[in-house]
Amino acid sequence: METHIKVARSRTKSQAISKRSSTFKNNLTIFLFIAPAFIIYAVYVLYPIYSTFNYSLYEWDGMSEKTFIGLQNYVNLLNDAIFWTSLTNNVWVVLTSIFVQIPLGLIMALMLFAPIRGIRLMNSVYFFPFLMSTVAIGLLWVLMYDPINGVINQLINLLGFGNIAWLSGSNTAMIAVLLVVVWQFSPFYMILFKAAIVGVPEELYEAAEIDGANAFTKFIHITFPMLMPTIVSSSILAIVGSLKAFDIFYIMTGGGPNHSTEIMGTYMFKQAFVNFNMGYASAIAFLMFFIALIVTIIIQLMDYYRKKKGAIS
């Protein structure tokens, strides 16, 4: 009797051990699958974010000893007029995305469903700008904006106006660069909207037609509401997009003239790799990270509530 119990006990024990060793083996397998990607990601993304915060607490030229100054860099940042200019310009980039790029992308997408010929040509050509490298786009448009030989001034001459030095005037430079940003990124929104339009159920339109709706009312009452989630998330993502903006501004104006096209990306780069104010630049960089983090959290929360609502209804 007792031996039976003993045997039974030792059996459960050995089962527990083998179960534990199998979960250990399982965990090891999971670890081995994820490790290569995670290690590279940790070395080049996660740890650097921490380092950036750490550097931002020091005064440092990148070479000699660091001096700890606490939050002084952030205080200086708040009193730095150029920083505020660049932050404002970032806001302009966001507003341009929301009020120009997204509507234009929507129009482009709608044109692909219009009852006219040449859809295939439009489909190909409208997407071209998004494929070119930003550096090439910048150089191309700098030449097109050229005060003497540029094609844009030629066009303006035809309309009866004098030449404008687009990129060297403080008032015009920002608008000129933003136009190029619109040119480059509208096609991206076009493909997002195109996919969303394809996803609208055909029955809705058929039902509306029976009720006597025309193309315009169909757009207002069916297409537009169905596209609203895409519009909202694209608008929020535009904030992150503006933080990532750098290449086009660096190539076309370098932030000039007189900081009129300075954005956070170009200002951070200048402070870090031209003036070698690595600590100060890190403070700008960490602020950029922080804004992106808040946007990410907002999007996650919106997603969460949308799913919750979907589960209830």
Partner: peptide
């Protein structure tokens, strides 16, 4: 952790990577 990297501005890692 992986997915949120899509939202990260490269600048936030530039100096440490350098």
């Amino acid at each position: 952790l992986f997915i949120s990297g899509m939202m990260l501005p490269i600048h936030a890692t530039l100096i440490p990577i350098f």
